[in-house]
Design a protein around this nucleic acid. Structure first.
Length: 514
RNA sequence: GCCCCUGUCGUCUAGCCCGGUCUAGGACGCUAGGUUCUCAUCCUGGAAACACGGGUUCAAAUCCCGUCAGGGGUACCA
């Protein structure tokens, strides 16, 4: 384990940074990390944190590492680990160092670093940063209960701080179970935050939290510090929900005599309408997988997420990944929480899809058509032709790829289902059934090779029948697609082909007459 | 309860640090119209915000204080 050989106090990169010169740092290696805990899905907010870290690393020529914070063995799952890997890969945010790719500062899962932690915890104890606590869970609970009843701040009362070193050693030797608690010093702790400026807290407001559990397992707040230090992390960029933790962690850095990294606390992402942050139960859109399943282009999602809490200027909306790298800076991150705006995502995604090469659209929509049972897997040659035509016809309307099934269902349907508006279009005039039959009979099959020619013919036919073009178009569209809107009518003709058109026109006439 | 963070159109934001150029800009959405066979796209227009109250100042969205509101934290979770 490389981390073992690193001596305390040596954090090569961090020493040269102050909180104001992140942007000036070019010569020393910047190291940032994304450190999710694999206890569920990958949160959009997590994805944004990963993105911002990645951006900082790319921008400054640094290293972006992934570390799995899996010290809570109760809640970790392998499935969750996989969604993290998948999600990051999908977004193109693969780490430079991490559990999958390895690296010089591994291992990158906290569960595999226990040995390191134990040694370091011992040292922390020797340095007086931590003290043994023999309080039972029961006593802790009753203390808390009383504090609640007295409407007084809930916090460890510090009983075991008073235990003398000799007593403590004796009790430990005696086999009495104990935890290790942070010994918060007197005074005040100041956090220079890249985004928030200086945040200060009186140390009396920092609790003597448990850092090592009964049995010796370390707790998150200790593991992060040990890891960030030994992995040479220079900038800790994470969600604001960690802000209070940071003060505890700062105490640990100081107790160990280590140089503190630079911190930046990102604003939280809030639920679209309701209050509070996104929760999985109430907000499926909290999970990155939700977007993957809906088929948003990852580059669109990245663009959207990037603009959540950060902006380049007062105009810029659409950016390539390269432009993001070029323009990103942590000091343009806003301080206030951002609500998810899914309408904006739809707009942005639609824009990306519209400007995308056609073959990509074809490739992306195919799985959804397969899943819907519209085409075989893999599609037959005929179906492939159809998919291509559908892609051409609907590219301009798609907001995400999964939408293709509702947009183009009519192409693959055996029988046409009429939407309310389409049904109305079939019945607007009493002679519609007759119109549709005459139109079907007149439809010239040879013209199905050329939409323009077919349209020209149809216009003439309408005029000759004494109809406005619209009078023809609306009922025909209804009969052909069952819908009131969609691609150009003659595009529709070509996609369906002559025989299908005639059949649907005739069914449409039936529906119009009934 | 206690600690911390935040507060510009419905939403994301620019502007705030270095007060006047802000009758507060952009985007999404909404809305009126134009183009088109419909929808989408595209074009043109519109409604829409400095949380509130005090200061400081010739002048405040911009500085200070208070209030209110929202958010986060408050575990032998991360």
């Amino acid at each position: 384990m490389d981390c073992k050989s690193t001596t305390p106090g040596s954090n090569p990169g961090a020493a040269s940074y102050s909180y104001s010169d992140l942007e000036l740092t070019v010569t020393s290696p910047v190291r940032v990390r994304f450190a999710p805990s694999p206890t569920g899905y990958l949160h959009v907010g997590g994805a944004r944190t990963a993105l911002f870290n990645w951006l900082v690393a790319r921008r400054l020529g640094g290293v972006y590492v992934l570390r799995l914070e899996d010290t809570d063995t109760e809640r970790n799952t392998d499935a969750s680990v996989r969604t993290i890997y998948d999600g990051l890969r999908w977004l193109g945010l693969d780490p430079d160092e991490g559990p999958e790719q390895g690296g010089p500062k591994g291992p990158y899962r906290q569960s595999e670093r226990d040995e390191l932690y134990r040694g370091l915890a011992d040292e922390l104890l020797v340095r007086g940063g931590v003290y043994p606590c023999f309080c039972t869970k029961e006593r802790l609970a009753s203390v808390r209960e009383k504090q609640i009843a007295d409407r007084v701040t809930q916090r460890y009362d510090g009983l075991c701080r008073a235990v003398s070193r000799e007593d403590a050693e004796a009790r430990v030797k005696n086999g009495e179970p104990f935890t290790l608690r942070l010994k918060v010093p007197e005074g005040e702790t100041v956090l220079p935050d890249l985004i928030r400026g200086e945040v200060r807290v009186k140390n009396e407001d920092i609790e003597d939290i448990i850092l090592v559990r009964t049995g010796g397992a370390v707790v998150y707040n200790l593991a992060v510090v040990f890891d960030d230090h030994h992995m040479g992390v220079t900038h800790v960029i994470r969600g604001e929900d960690h802000l209070t933790n940071t003060f505890k962690q700062l105490c640990i850095y100081d107790a160990m005599g280590w140089t503190r990294p630079v911190f930046a606390h990102l604003p939280l992402i809030l639920a679209p309408a309701g209050e509070g942050k996104l929760s999985k139960r109430k907000h499926p859109e909290a999970a990155l997988e939700w977007y993957q399943r809906k088929g948003y282009p990852p580059e669109a999602l990245l663009n959207w997420i990037c603009l959540l809490g950060w902006s380049f200027d007062d105009k810029t909306e659409i950016m390539t990944r390269e432009e993001m790298v070029e323009r990103f800076s942590i000091d343009r991150v806003v301080k206030s929480g951002a609500r998810l705006n899914l309408e904006k995502l739809d707009w942005m995604s639609g824009d990306y899809i519209r400007r995308m090469p056609l073959d990509r659209v074809v490739r992306e929509i195919t799985p959804y058509l397969v899943e819907a049972g519209f085409v075989a897997s893999p599609p037959t040659a005929d179906e492939a032709t159809k998919i291509h035509a559908v892609a051409v016809a609907e590219q301009g309307r798609l907001r995400c790829f999964s939408q293709i099934t509702e947009l183009a269902g009519w192409v693959f349907a055996k029988t046409v289902a009429y939407e309310a508006k389409a049904a109305a279009n079939l019945k607007k005039r009493p002679d519609t059934a007759d119109l549709l039959r005459r139109y079907a009979a007149a439809l010239p099959e040879p013209l199905f090779a050329d939409g323009k020619a077919l349209e020209a013919w149809a216009r003439d036919w309408a005029t000759a029948s004494g109809l406005g073009f619209g009078d023809l178009v609306h009922p025909v569209r209804a009969a052909l697609t069952g819908r009131a809107q969609g691609p150009g009518l003659f595009e529709v003709h070509l996609i369906l082909g002559h025989a299908t058109c005639v059949a649907r026109l005739s069914s449409g006439a039936g529906a119009a007459a009934s």
